[in-house]
Amino acid sequence: MRSFLALLKRDMLLAYRQGSALTMTLSFFVIAVTLFPLGVGPELNVLARIGPGVLWVGALLACLLTLDRIFQADFEDGTLEQLMLGPLSIEFIVLTKIIAHWVMSVLPLIAITPILAISLNVHADGIWAMIFSLLIGSPVLSLIGAVGAALTVAMRRGGVLLSLLVLPLYIPVLIFGVASVEAAVALMPMAPHLMLLGGLSLGALVVCPFAAAAALRLAVE
Protein backbone atom coordinates (compact mmCIF):
# COMPACT_ATOMS: atom_id res chain seq x y z
CA MET A 1 0.00 0.00 0.00
CA ARG A 2 2.83 2.39 0.86
CA SER A 3 4.57 1.82 -2.44
CA PHE A 4 1.21 2.25 -4.18
CA LEU A 5 0.73 5.67 -2.57
CA ALA A 6 4.34 6.67 -3.20
CA LEU A 7 4.00 5.81 -6.86
CA LEU A 8 0.71 7.67 -7.08
CA LYS A 9 2.29 10.73 -5.49
CA ARG A 10 5.22 10.58 -7.90
CA ASP A 11 2.95 10.35 -10.94
CA MET A 12 0.77 13.25 -9.81
CA LEU A 13 3.80 15.36 -8.99
CA LEU A 14 5.31 14.68 -12.41
CA ALA A 15 2.06 15.64 -14.14
CA TYR A 16 1.77 18.75 -11.96
CA ARG A 17 5.31 19.94 -12.69
CA GLN A 18 4.75 19.50 -16.41
CA GLY A 19 1.87 21.93 -16.25
CA SER A 20 2.10 22.96 -19.91
CA ALA A 21 0.54 19.67 -21.04
CA LEU A 22 -2.48 20.37 -18.87
CA THR A 23 -2.94 23.92 -20.18
CA MET A 24 -2.71 22.63 -23.73
CA THR A 25 -5.38 19.99 -23.11
CA LEU A 26 -7.67 22.55 -21.51
CA SER A 27 -7.11 24.99 -24.37
CA PHE A 28 -7.91 22.26 -26.86
CA PHE A 29 -11.16 21.49 -25.04
CA VAL A 30 -12.16 25.17 -24.99
CA ILE A 31 -11.26 25.76 -28.64
CA ALA A 32 -12.96 22.57 -29.84
CA VAL A 33 -16.16 23.54 -28.04
CA THR A 34 -15.92 27.13 -29.32
CA LEU A 35 -15.86 25.87 -32.89
CA PHE A 36 -19.42 24.56 -32.63
CA PRO A 37 -21.26 27.87 -32.13
CA LEU A 38 -19.20 29.24 -35.01
CA GLY A 39 -19.93 26.25 -37.21
CA VAL A 40 -23.58 25.65 -36.37
CA GLY A 41 -24.56 29.27 -35.91
CA PRO A 42 -25.20 31.25 -32.74
CA GLU A 43 -28.96 30.60 -32.23
CA LEU A 44 -29.35 29.99 -28.52
CA ASN A 45 -31.99 27.24 -28.68
CA VAL A 46 -29.93 25.24 -31.17
CA LEU A 47 -26.91 25.56 -28.91
CA ALA A 48 -28.91 24.56 -25.85
CA ARG A 49 -30.12 21.51 -27.78
CA ILE A 50 -26.69 20.31 -28.91
CA GLY A 51 -24.72 21.65 -25.90
CA PRO A 52 -24.56 18.46 -23.79
CA GLY A 53 -23.45 16.36 -26.75
CA VAL A 54 -20.84 18.90 -27.83
CA LEU A 55 -19.39 19.09 -24.32
CA TRP A 56 -19.24 15.31 -23.94
CA VAL A 57 -17.61 14.83 -27.34
CA GLY A 58 -15.16 17.66 -26.60
CA ALA A 59 -14.21 16.12 -23.26
CA LEU A 60 -13.80 12.73 -24.93
CA LEU A 61 -11.45 14.06 -27.60
CA ALA A 62 -9.46 16.17 -25.13
CA CYS A 63 -9.05 13.07 -22.97
CA LEU A 64 -7.94 11.08 -26.02
CA LEU A 65 -5.12 13.57 -26.61
CA THR A 66 -3.72 12.94 -23.14
CA LEU A 67 -3.84 9.14 -23.25
CA ASP A 68 -0.45 8.51 -24.85
CA ARG A 69 1.18 10.26 -21.88
CA ILE A 70 -0.02 7.63 -19.40
CA PHE A 71 2.85 5.22 -20.06
CA GLN A 72 4.96 6.89 -22.76
CA ALA A 73 7.59 8.74 -20.71
CA ASP A 74 8.13 5.91 -18.23
CA PHE A 75 8.35 3.40 -21.05
CA GLU A 76 10.91 5.39 -22.99
CA ASP A 77 13.37 6.08 -20.17
CA GLY A 78 13.09 2.56 -18.76
CA THR A 79 11.36 3.53 -15.51
CA LEU A 80 8.49 1.22 -16.33
CA GLU A 81 10.76 -1.82 -16.50
CA GLN A 82 12.30 -0.90 -13.15
CA LEU A 83 8.86 -0.49 -11.61
CA MET A 84 7.80 -3.87 -12.94
CA LEU A 85 10.80 -5.46 -11.20
CA GLY A 86 9.69 -3.90 -7.92
CA PRO A 87 7.34 -5.31 -5.27
CA LEU A 88 4.17 -3.79 -6.71
CA SER A 89 2.28 -5.99 -9.16
CA ILE A 90 1.80 -4.60 -12.66
CA GLU A 91 -1.96 -4.33 -12.22
CA PHE A 92 -1.44 -1.91 -9.34
CA ILE A 93 1.18 0.08 -11.23
CA VAL A 94 -1.36 0.46 -14.00
CA LEU A 95 -4.00 1.49 -11.49
CA THR A 96 -1.81 4.27 -10.05
CA LYS A 97 -1.16 5.56 -13.56
CA ILE A 98 -4.88 5.52 -14.31
CA ILE A 99 -5.78 7.34 -11.09
CA ALA A 100 -3.07 9.91 -11.70
CA HIS A 101 -4.28 10.40 -15.27
CA TRP A 102 -7.88 10.84 -14.17
CA VAL A 103 -7.02 13.32 -11.40
CA MET A 104 -4.49 15.35 -13.37
CA SER A 105 -5.99 15.31 -16.88
CA VAL A 106 -9.71 14.57 -16.65
CA LEU A 107 -10.75 16.39 -13.47
CA PRO A 108 -9.56 19.79 -14.82
CA LEU A 109 -11.71 19.19 -17.90
CA ILE A 110 -14.72 18.54 -15.68
CA ALA A 111 -13.90 21.66 -13.66
CA ILE A 112 -14.17 24.00 -16.62
CA THR A 113 -17.21 22.27 -18.14
CA PRO A 114 -19.77 24.45 -16.28
CA ILE A 115 -18.31 27.64 -17.77
CA LEU A 116 -18.44 26.18 -21.28
CA ALA A 117 -21.95 24.87 -20.62
CA ILE A 118 -23.11 28.37 -19.69
CA SER A 119 -21.62 29.72 -22.90
CA LEU A 120 -23.60 27.11 -24.83
CA ASN A 121 -26.80 28.16 -23.07
CA VAL A 122 -27.31 24.75 -21.41
CA HIS A 123 -30.09 24.85 -18.80
CA ALA A 124 -29.01 25.13 -15.15
CA ASP A 125 -30.34 21.65 -14.30
CA GLY A 126 -28.41 20.35 -17.27
CA ILE A 127 -25.16 21.82 -15.94
CA TRP A 128 -25.49 19.96 -12.65
CA ALA A 129 -26.36 16.78 -14.53
CA MET A 130 -23.37 17.39 -16.78
CA ILE A 131 -20.97 17.55 -13.81
CA PHE A 132 -22.49 14.47 -12.17
CA SER A 133 -22.46 12.41 -15.32
CA LEU A 134 -18.88 13.42 -16.12
CA LEU A 135 -17.73 12.62 -12.58
CA ILE A 136 -19.35 9.19 -12.67
CA GLY A 137 -18.62 8.32 -16.30
CA SER A 138 -15.19 9.79 -16.97
CA PRO A 139 -13.21 7.12 -15.04
CA VAL A 140 -14.19 4.81 -17.90
CA LEU A 141 -12.33 7.13 -20.27
CA SER A 142 -9.10 6.79 -18.29
CA LEU A 143 -9.56 3.05 -17.72
CA ILE A 144 -10.27 2.04 -21.32
CA GLY A 145 -7.77 4.62 -22.53
CA ALA A 146 -5.06 2.98 -20.42
CA VAL A 147 -5.62 -0.32 -22.24
CA GLY A 148 -5.28 1.42 -25.60
CA ALA A 149 -2.22 3.34 -24.40
CA ALA A 150 -0.59 0.15 -23.13
CA LEU A 151 -1.26 -1.65 -26.42
CA THR A 152 0.27 1.13 -28.49
CA VAL A 153 3.07 2.27 -26.17
CA ALA A 154 5.80 0.36 -28.00
CA MET A 155 4.81 1.68 -31.41
CA ARG A 156 6.50 4.64 -32.97
CA ARG A 157 3.33 6.17 -34.38
CA GLY A 158 0.67 4.70 -32.14
CA GLY A 159 -1.47 7.83 -31.91
CA VAL A 160 -3.86 7.18 -34.77
CA LEU A 161 -4.19 3.50 -33.92
CA LEU A 162 -4.88 4.49 -30.31
CA SER A 163 -7.89 6.56 -31.33
CA LEU A 164 -9.15 3.79 -33.63
CA LEU A 165 -8.96 1.31 -30.76
CA VAL A 166 -10.33 3.48 -28.00
CA LEU A 167 -13.07 5.63 -29.54
CA PRO A 168 -15.48 2.77 -30.43
CA LEU A 169 -15.28 1.60 -26.83
CA TYR A 170 -16.04 5.14 -25.59
CA ILE A 171 -19.38 5.24 -27.39
CA PRO A 172 -21.51 3.67 -24.59
CA VAL A 173 -20.21 6.25 -22.08
CA LEU A 174 -21.01 9.04 -24.51
CA ILE A 175 -24.55 7.73 -25.10
CA PHE A 176 -25.46 7.38 -21.42
CA GLY A 177 -23.64 10.57 -20.42
CA VAL A 178 -25.54 12.70 -22.91
CA ALA A 179 -28.80 10.85 -22.15
CA SER A 180 -28.54 11.73 -18.45
CA VAL A 181 -28.02 15.43 -19.20
CA GLU A 182 -30.91 15.47 -21.65
CA ALA A 183 -33.13 13.70 -19.13
CA ALA A 184 -32.28 16.34 -16.54
CA VAL A 185 -33.04 19.18 -18.97
CA ALA A 186 -36.39 17.55 -19.82
CA LEU A 187 -37.12 17.27 -16.05
CA MET A 188 -37.13 13.47 -16.22
CA PRO A 189 -35.36 11.16 -13.76
CA MET A 190 -31.68 10.93 -14.61
CA ALA A 191 -30.83 8.32 -11.99
CA PRO A 192 -31.11 5.30 -14.36
CA HIS A 193 -28.58 6.79 -16.76
CA LEU A 194 -26.22 7.71 -13.93
CA MET A 195 -26.51 4.18 -12.53
CA LEU A 196 -25.65 2.72 -15.93
CA LEU A 197 -22.65 5.05 -16.11
CA GLY A 198 -21.63 3.92 -12.62
CA GLY A 199 -21.98 0.32 -13.74
CA LEU A 200 -19.76 0.97 -16.75
CA SER A 201 -17.15 2.60 -14.49
CA LEU A 202 -17.12 -0.28 -12.02
CA GLY A 203 -17.04 -2.88 -14.78
CA ALA A 204 -14.15 -1.12 -16.48
CA LEU A 205 -12.38 -0.83 -13.11
CA VAL A 206 -12.45 -4.62 -12.81
CA VAL A 207 -11.42 -5.52 -16.35
CA CYS A 208 -9.17 -2.75 -17.65
CA PRO A 209 -6.22 -2.84 -15.19
CA PHE A 210 -5.72 -6.53 -16.01
CA ALA A 211 -5.95 -6.00 -19.75
CA ALA A 212 -3.60 -3.00 -19.61
CA ALA A 213 -1.15 -4.95 -17.47
CA ALA A 214 -1.15 -7.82 -19.95
CA ALA A 215 -0.51 -5.34 -22.76
CA LEU A 216 2.35 -3.71 -20.82
CA ARG A 217 4.05 -7.06 -20.21
CA LEU A 218 3.88 -7.55 -23.94
CA ALA A 219 5.41 -4.13 -24.65
CA VAL A 220 8.29 -4.57 -22.22
CA GLU A 221 9.26 -8.20 -22.92
Binding site: I144, V147, L151, T152, A154, M155, G158, L161, L164, L165, L167, P168, L169, V207, C208, A211, A214, A215, L218
Partner: peptide, 29 residues
Protein backbone atom coordinates in the same frame (compact mmCIF):
# COMPACT_ATOMS: atom_id res chain seq x y z
CA UNK B 1 -14.88 -0.48 -36.01
CA UNK B 2 -13.74 -3.24 -33.65
CA UNK B 3 -12.96 -5.49 -36.62
CA UNK B 4 -11.02 -2.65 -38.29
CA UNK B 5 -9.11 -1.89 -35.08
CA UNK B 6 -8.27 -5.58 -34.70
CA UNK B 7 -6.86 -5.76 -38.22
CA UNK B 8 -4.95 -2.51 -37.65
CA UNK B 9 -3.28 -4.00 -34.56
CA UNK B 10 -2.12 -7.02 -36.57
CA UNK B 11 -0.68 -4.65 -39.16
CA UNK B 12 1.18 -2.39 -36.72
CA UNK B 13 3.43 -4.90 -34.97
CA UNK B 14 6.48 -6.29 -36.70
CA UNK B 15 6.78 -9.19 -34.29
CA UNK B 16 3.93 -11.57 -35.14
CA UNK B 17 3.71 -13.19 -31.71
CA UNK B 18 3.41 -9.77 -30.05
CA UNK B 19 0.78 -8.75 -32.57
CA UNK B 20 -1.17 -11.91 -31.78
CA UNK B 21 -1.25 -11.17 -28.06
CA UNK B 22 -2.10 -7.48 -28.46
CA UNK B 23 -4.88 -8.28 -30.90
CA UNK B 24 -6.21 -10.97 -28.56
CA UNK B 25 -6.43 -8.50 -25.67
CA UNK B 26 -8.33 -6.07 -27.88
CA UNK B 27 -10.74 -8.68 -29.21
CA UNK B 28 -11.55 -9.92 -25.70
CA UNK B 29 -12.35 -6.41 -24.46
Amino acid sequence: FLYLGYMAVWGSFEDQSKAAKAAAILVLI
